[in-house]
Design a binder for these strands. Structure first.
Length: 271
DNA sequence: ACCGCTGTTCTCCG
DNA sequence: TCGGAGAACAGCGG
């Protein structure tokens, strides 16, 4: 499920549900989500702590508890946060925080691609995956110059570089393809050979892509669970639309494999 | 029944 | 050291 917009949605939900609350019990099942750490380490690190803040860095969630304690959460491909009553079962729950309001926040992750780590926040922030993250794709100061500094570091194809979290944090397969379509740039182009006009277009396109995704998402004020209805229409411009006509030039859209993922694009108007 | 997949990380290879 | 391919993780939906 999650790229940057969905993770931002999860961050907002978590703030509403959990900031200011005390964790009465933290429970985790042994699973690869814990990366070999013992469930009781989760319990020991978080039990009795009050959540002070929730931050998002790219697709990571950083939970700041009192006393400098922290939790680092990545939703992987199928992870999601849900709120239940304490005692209510949740399928595929890999960890849960039982709060002082009789609610339990579960990390539900059927495929176990997600990740939960706990410990002093200072240590979590020094972990390589977090420390090496590029600037947030949603950062309003991301302009042509900033993008040039990031993309100039590699000669890989644009689409691959945009999905590299060390280059830019937050874009995944869908939004990288969507941003390139909006910028009219080929996913195959070398990252380090863009003109400043093209970089400007790309910076704007990334902002539009993320903004559009935010806008088409339910706002986190209500206690709704974010689930796409089955049969809902594909909301994207090119993702998942191979064979359909380009919304800009009517050329049939195409797809091809790139870095083990499927890239969707318009071969006519993306150059 | 089979294939693909909104993510990350690892290994193997050039 | 870089980069590409493929595998692994594991369940669901088309």
């Amino acid at each position: 499920m999650p790229e940057l917009p969905e993770v931002e949605f999860a961050a907002r939900q978590l703030r509403r549900w959990m900031v200011g609350r005390r964790v009465e019990r933290a429970v985790a099942e042994p699973s690869r989500v814990l990366r070999g750490r013992a469930p009781r380490e989760i319990a020991r690190a978080l039990q009795g702590r009050r959540l002070e803040a929730v931050r998002r860095r790219g697709k990571y969630l950083l939970l700041d508890f009192d006393g400098g304690a922290g939790a680092l959460l990545h939703l992987g491909m199928t992870g999601k946060l849900v709120r239940r009553e304490v005692g209510e079962a949740e399928a595929y729950s890999r960890a849960r925080f039982e709060l002082d309001d009789r609610r339990a926040i579960h990390l539900r992750d059927p495929r176990k691609f997600g990740r939960l780590a706990v410990g002093p926040m200072a240590r979590l922030e020094r972990m390589k995956e977090v420390a090496a993250l590029g600037p947030d794709a949603n950062d309003p100061s991301l302009d042509a110059r900033a993008l040039a500094a990031r993309l100039g570091r590699t000669c890989r194809p644009l689409k691959i570089a945009l999905m590299d979290q060390r280059v830019l944090a937050g874009l995944g397969n869908i939004h990288a393809a969507e941003a390139l379509f909006r910028a009219q740039l080929s996913p195959k182009r070398r990252s380090d050979r863009l003109s400043s006009a093209q970089l400007g277009r790309l910076a704007a396109a990334i902002g539009e892509t993320i903004g559009f995704a935010f806008d088409s998402m339910p706002q986190a004020e209500a206690d709704i669970e974010y689930v796409e209805e089955p049969g809902a229409e594909n909301p994207f411009l090119v993702y998942g639309k191979a064979g359909e006509r380009c919304p800009r030039c009517r050329e049939p859209l195409r797809s091809f494999a790139q870095g083990g993922r499927t890239t969707f694009w318009c071969p006519r108007c993306q150059r």
